[in-house]
Design a binder for these strands. Structure first.
Lengths: 137, 137
DNA sequence: TATTATTACCTTGCATGCAAGATAATAGCG
DNA sequence: CGCTATTATCTTGCATGCAAGGTAATAATA
């Protein structure tokens, strides 16, 4: 019997828990959650994505996405617009408020990454990220 | 600006998401969630732990624990008992049903770990686990 | 073109996960 | 002993996260 302390699912869950906690603390000043910030990061890469495409890029199902999107529209970080060509598609656009917050958020993300990987050398960081991508597949 | 694809928080979240998904699928046959299984793993290590001690060992706050415990008592995986000496303390004990499920659950956990780390050598597995423990601290 | 299949999105129900506050029991201290 | 501080647990409110099912719009096909 493997101790749960050596179970990779547990180790991933708790590392993720700590990482989420650090980022969450830094984002609190902006009134944003890590998921909401991730949502906007997808749009910084390409504004006007459809809800489905955002979900594919950040690997989140549309059920969860719907709630996140609702809250972000309410908080005026983004606006939704039905596609002119395909009436099924909802496109999402960043607001001015979101664009203004960009530098601060980018900084929060960078500081978080540095803090989380403080004990890692550059090589270790790269190896660690490769490992994370290699989990299952 | 770091792409979210290189953000360690995102990488951890998604690796955890995949890991959770694999374990969840294997546990479905038992009618258990990964969290409920983890909860029982803590009790296999030491039966009769208090709610608070379980939370410390699996790094979960009591707010979340309360709900998990309720569902596990209802499903008769565990029973709760107020400590005889300290009336504030609730102790949790595994039921016969839980003990019978043990071999199957241990196997599910092992299969999950092998599947998730299929591409890893033994050295890489050890290094990866060390990295996960080294995230923040 | 009429019908069927597919697609995009949404809604509901259930299970975490955390912050903040409430409650009850015990411990500590004069 | 009586009062205060601490501790253990529970409750509520909000935000994910997923499974399953619903709806509307478009695509595919006869």
């Amino acid at each position: 019997m493997i101790s749960f302390r050596d179970n990779i699912v547990f180790l991933l869950a708790k590392a993720h828990q700590r990482a989420q906690g650090v980022l969450k603390a830094y984002l609190q000043a902006f009134g944003l959650t890590p998921m909401q910030c991730l949502f906007m990061e997808a749009l910084w890469e390409e504004d006007g994505l459809s809800v489905g495409e955002i979900g594919r890029r950040i690997a989140l199902d549309t059920a969860t996405l719907a709630g996140v999107l609702d809250r972000m529209v309410t908080a005026e970080w983004v606006r939704r617009e039905t596609d002119q060509v395909d009436g099924r598609v909802t496109r999402v656009y960043l607001t001015e408020k979101a664009r203004e917050a960009f530098p601060g958020l980018a900084s929060a993300i960078e500081v978080t990454n540095n803090e989380l990987l403080n004990n890692f050398s550059l090589e270790e960081k790269l190896l660690f990220k490769r490992f994370l991508r290699d989990v299952k597949d």
